[in-house]
Simulated scan of single mutants.
Amino acid sequence: MSAELAVVYAALILEDDNVEITADKLQTLVAAAGVEVEPIWFSLYAKALAGQDLKALLLNVGAPGSGPAVAGGAAAGSAPADAPAEEAKAEEKEESDDDMGFGLFD
């Protein structure tokens, strides 16, 4: 098992038991599993997950609008504000292929 995966599993265990995710608690769980992990990973994961609701993050995986906007506090299911800009860029890219004077199936 990889070190990162062991820390993620430990974080999920703590979240499932409604226990605060700290570096010390992550380290205790990983040590109990017998997995060797560099100490830096515990503090990195503890800082990254501080204040996050892992259950909500897991439930929103693959949901529309579940990118960074959801983690930033936007309502789940809402479209990002820059969606029209992305569509315009995609259309420009498609049109630029026509400028070459030939197409894929010509």
Rank of each mutant, 00 (worst) to 15 (best):
K47Y: 10
A69H: 05
A90R: 07
K89M: 11
K93Y: 14
P68D: 15
A81D: 07
V70E: 02
A75T: 08
A81L: 11
K93Q: 14
V7M: 01
K25T: 04
A90N: 07
A69G: 05
E91N: 11
F102L: 10
A31E: 13
A88K: 09
V35E: 10
M1P: 01
L14G: 01
S43Q: 03
A90V: 07
A48Y: 09
G103E: 10
G62K: 06
S78Q: 13
G62H: 04
I13L: 08
K47Q: 10
P39R: 09
K47R: 12
G65K: 01
A50D: 08
P64A: 14
L49M: 06
A79F: 12
A46N: 05
G73R: 08
A50T: 09
N18Q: 11
A31K: 07
E36S: 15
V35R: 05
A3S: 08
L12A: 01
V8A: 04
Y45N: 00
F105C: 11
G73K: 07
G73N: 10
L59W: 09
A11M: 06
V19K: 06
A76F: 14
A76W: 10
L29W: 05
P80M: 03
Q27K: 02
F102K: 04
E95A: 14
N60Q: 15
K89W: 13
P80F: 03
W41A: 06
K55Q: 06
A11L: 08
E4L: 04
A83G: 04
G65Q: 02
L12Q: 01
A76S: 12
V37A: 02
G62I: 07
E36P: 13
D17H: 15
L58K: 04
G101K: 04
E95N: 14
A10R: 00
E4V: 03
A32L: 15
D16Y: 05
L5V: 13
A69K: 03
L12T: 00
V30L: 03
L57Y: 02
L54Q: 00
A74K: 01
A32N: 11
P84I: 07
L104E: 07
E91C: 12
G67Y: 09
F102V: 08
P80K: 01
E38P: 05
D99I: 11
I13Q: 02
A6W: 01
G62S: 07
V8M: 05
L12N: 00
A3Y: 02
M100L: 15
A31L: 12
L57Q: 00
